[in-house]
Nucleic acid binder design. Sequence first.
DNA 1: TGACAGCATGTTTACGTAAACATGACGGCG
DNA 2: CGCCGTCATGTTTACGTAAACATGCTGTCA
Lengths: 348, 348
Amino acid sequence: MVERGGSGVPGGRRKQRVSMADVAKLAGVSSQTVSRVSNGHPGVISSTREQVLAAMRELGYRPNSAARALRYGQFNTIGVILFSLSSTGNSRTVEAIATHAAAEGYATTLIPIDVPTQDNVLGAFTRMGELAVDAVIVIMEIHLLDTGTVQLPPGVHVVVVDSDAGDRYSVVDTDQADGARKAVRHLLDLGHRTVWHVTGPQESFAGQRRAQAWRAVLGEAGRPVPPALYGDWSAASGYEAGLVLPEPPDCTAVFAANDQMALGLLRAFHERGLSVPYDVSVVGFDDIPDAGFFVPPLTTVHQDFAEVGHRCVQKALEQIRAQTEARPGTDLVPTTLVVRGSTAPPSV
Amino acid sequence: MVERGGSGVPGGRRKQRVSMADVAKLAGVSSQTVSRVSNGHPGVISSTREQVLAAMRELGYRPNSAARALRYGQFNTIGVILFSLSSTGNSRTVEAIATHAAAEGYATTLIPIDVPTQDNVLGAFTRMGELAVDAVIVIMEIHLLDTGTVQLPPGVHVVVVDSDAGDRYSVVDTDQADGARKAVRHLLDLGHRTVWHVTGPQESFAGQRRAQAWRAVLGEAGRPVPPALYGDWSAASGYEAGLVLPEPPDCTAVFAANDQMALGLLRAFHERGLSVPYDVSVVGFDDIPDAGFFVPPLTTVHQDFAEVGHRCVQKALEQIRAQTEARPGTDLVPTTLVVRGSTAPPSV
DNA sequence: TGACAGCATGTTTACGTAAACATGACGGCG
DNA sequence: CGCCGTCATGTTTACGTAAACATGCTGTCA
């Protein structure tokens, strides 16, 4: 391949990118015609089109998306701000977002926040303004955002996941409360007198909602409400909780705020010589792929992360296309209870 | 806020974006001076700088990254092509990529491939050419890529994860073989006569490597090589395998190619009334966060996904900065064996 | 036959930024 | 006192694309 000589660029780094002008020159047409071919516009006679396509192939032409974005004022990109990708649901939500966005011709840009301090979140939002993004999906406890200082750049649309900010933002979330209700009611229906609860981290909105619902169901049913045990989503914290829970018949049923903590519980009970589900019933939340293979298989609340991601993209695209501001409101994705082997009527 | 009147744009959608020219007009300077302030260039007297900054604040100016990218010929973005984000390690690798990229001022764009057919991969690569990306990290069995038809756009740098394509691409991967060796040796050292193996999917490069190493270690030690049981990474497939493995003393040790299949094994053995580790020892691979809370806690090979992601970014940035083509070669990240409660000397 | 519609294609311009070059004022030194 | 270097700032231009407008040719119908 020969170094292009005609380029007026003096010395240094040669230009690697093939532009429309290059294609146009080779095909012997104007760059506008190349543009029309490139975008499939009508009004190009087929012989010309063929010539242009041939030139494109020969030079390996690819449209420059920066120039396109500049021209159109759009990036065809959705940004996702998140704290951690490792947390159970996030990666599945993000995957769904990326897949659906791709199907709509949008790319997905990740904006990770290593430590969820106010400063970092703020920084991410600031950076985001400079980022090539048409809309942003925030997967994070929203209370980190709303100290008032954080100003979203205008023209950027926002959808939020896992949050109580439905009054200010457009929110999509799993119906945490309903899921938790299903879990607790299932245990009560089996005949348990009451249900213990291992919570998520206290600053987690999802965790709070699950705990609230747990408390509410017990209250409505007139059952005693045992003290909550505080976990942090990790199996380790579930294990810790499992070691300090009282023996049956004081505790015959536990609702863990997620599956990993439920796993920790299972291990703790196993070590204590308590049989699940005969001595103690355990219900989790999330329905991670492995949940069916715990010992025993875990009864849990299934979250449809894919649907959450899907709706996020829908909402974001709606906003982009309609040029609307985020319409506040919360969109709840329903859950289902998956009954497996970790729950049974109390044996006492 | 008042609709700007001076804009020559007729009718329709008003321009939302504030440009340097707007800031310049308000501050009473040229747009070049605004550019200098925006980029922290020297040679702007502080009073002028203040004026410009004030104007920026007042108008809410944010640099337009499309224009920047066009000017610089760079996007400050790394693309990640992947098949699934849900697979154990991928989400952690991607998270590490995103974090390290962000630290270097690069955004991370996800290019998901829903079904790993040749067509789709090809499509992703084609799209990628149009995508605003300076380098690409491919997390995927590479053999899907190299039928020869797939042509990477020139000027895009590539790093590959989980592949044997070290002769053509720059590859970063966990040292699969060494990890598997450690697992098998650990079991032999405990006194087991031989070790059974539940593999990953046959088209997985990582799975192949682990299986090869397993076979090699047994061969070197002069032990019989039992038939491999074929799994697909899922706990379900591990469970299936666990149901058909022979009773001790024919089978006293199993090496599962990942932790989820090991989990399935544990459940199968539990159902069969076999005690782990007294009747059968089990070793996994990955060291997922929950592995320590399986029943019993799983002995497994720890993969440093974060390091893999880190090195990917390093390599990608090296290529971008040096304007070098991908230097072929494989960079292996070491593993560690984490011994927990699922392995013990054979009781027979 | 001439005017005009319709169509393929070319030319101009703008998108927002920043490098390269131009300008002009001021101060120091011969 | 005048020349020139330095420094703050302005002006021009190019990056690649595509809309808007311009051009020129062909064929048709009055």
